[in-house]
Design a protein around this nucleic acid. Structure first.
Lengths: 233, 233
DNA sequence: GCAGATTATGTCAGCGACTGACATTCGGCA
DNA sequence: TGCCGAATGTCAGTCGCTGACATAATCTGC
């Protein structure tokens, strides 16, 4: 019977004394783990942005949180992972949004709506933990000009594309091994997003999450024209 | 002046005695450098395919060619690079093909034709050096299931996409900063290729360069249908 | 509450990728 | 032939990352 003082651990009132489902909530151990994980991300983030990714050692990060280097590597497989952890969470959120899009949208509409929704939600001020939008945007810039980070990020993105492929296939009731459209759609979607990210890093004018959303929209809108046969009508 | 894939070192005979352009050709130094580079790629390739990428140390590769580890790192910035060097050359060749496509093709047609051409040329049996097609195909499989290699490869691909963007923009006489279509086109093209590569690794049936060409074609053909509004006509 | 099983963490030793500095050798060239 | 610069080797060192083992903290049933 772990004590549950913190957070919205949902103190489910009205539970019968002999109930076989005590809904224990996260115990002390879990909470502690989450805290050190968040602290590591936070510290790493701060060090990366202030002195650069390459010039920050894992030892520094660990020392900032007062854990051993070995512990750091029990939380993150490598230095890249701690830098990309925030984005990883955001991507999970996006997948969740995609799953909840109404069934009557076609795949492209659903994908576009889900990504906009995700940026909006990330943009709302009530975000907890180290995953604020501003830092997410700073992060994208940092990733885009840190080769090793960009590489790791792109690999993550393609993993995510696989998931998107599956979700789209489920929505449309298709076997992704038979019908190539979900895979192509996922790949195209991913590439449009990346093109938008690239524009974002190149264009210092665009600012804030709404700027990014607008930028993504503009890129989506070019999809039709780009694939149209004749560019010089 | 695109870099021709300097195949045989063609000893251009018939030069006049007083010619102000003695066409010295690569001297001994250059030839030696090229040889050790090729040897390193060859040895690395062989070791990677036989015992895996991670289980091959740089020392082993260097020892196989009888140079010091330090010398290895003067030729390649890291272990990834030696694995991807062959593909990098192939990509340069592709860009060259793209530049030479007739101007009346639209961008998508030109890209598609250029990639098919490239695979055909790579497939022809008169290829010299360690860049045979079979090894290129083996390489793709190896990359696709070696996380760190996949990451590095994807980064290379996006670099290449930037180049493609520029070439397309030049063909169409556009400013890529103004008109987003070249960037979107390049991104879409890259993603279709990757989707094809993925299918290739998943489908053990498809074999040889012609198989890959066919697979790429099938993916291209899905581009229209995937982006069409209604998937369930 | 308390033993005992789990699990997180620390410590330590070690491998391998990569780099800077300096010495040495080798090819290019007058 | 002899000099210059480029390529290579040697060495020492940093840093990312891992396995093995010991220790300390939670959790679980009593």
């Amino acid at each position: 019977m772990a004590a549950q003082p913190a957070l919205p651990a949902t103190a489910r009132a009205g539970r019968a004394p002999g109930d076989p489902e005590p809904e224990p909530g996260p115990g002390l151990r879990e909470r502690k783990k989450r805290r050190t994980r968040d602290a590591l991300i936070e510290a790493a983030h701060q060090l990366f942005l202030s002195q650069g990714f390459a010039r920050t050692t894992v030892d520094e990060i660990a020392a900032a949180v007062d854990v051993s280097q070995r512990t750091f590597f029990r939380y993150f497989a490598n230095k890249d992972e701690v830098a990309l952890a925030v984005l990883a969470d955001a991507e999970d959120y996006f997948i969740d949004r995609l799953r909840n899009r109404p069934a009557d949208e076609n795949p492209l509409q659903a994908l576009r709506a889900a990504i906009v929704e995700s940026w909006r939600e990330l943009g709302s001020p009530d975000r907890t933990g180290p995953g604020s939008v501003t830092s997410a945007l700073e992060l994208i810039r940092m990733i885009e000009d840190t080769p090793t980070l960009l590489a790791a990020h792109l690999r993550r993105v393609t993993d995510q594309e696989r998931v998107v492929t599956r979700v789209i296939a489920e929505r449309e009731n298709l076997d992704p091994a038979e019908d190539l459209r979900p895979a192509v759609m996922a790949a195209v979607f991913g590439s449009v997003l990346r093109a938008a990210h690239l524009s974002w890093t190149a264009d210092q004018e665009v600012d804030g999450p709404e700027g990014m959303i607008a930028l993504i929209g503009r890129h989506f809108d070019q999809l039709g024209p780009a694939l149209a046969g004749d560019w010089r009508h």
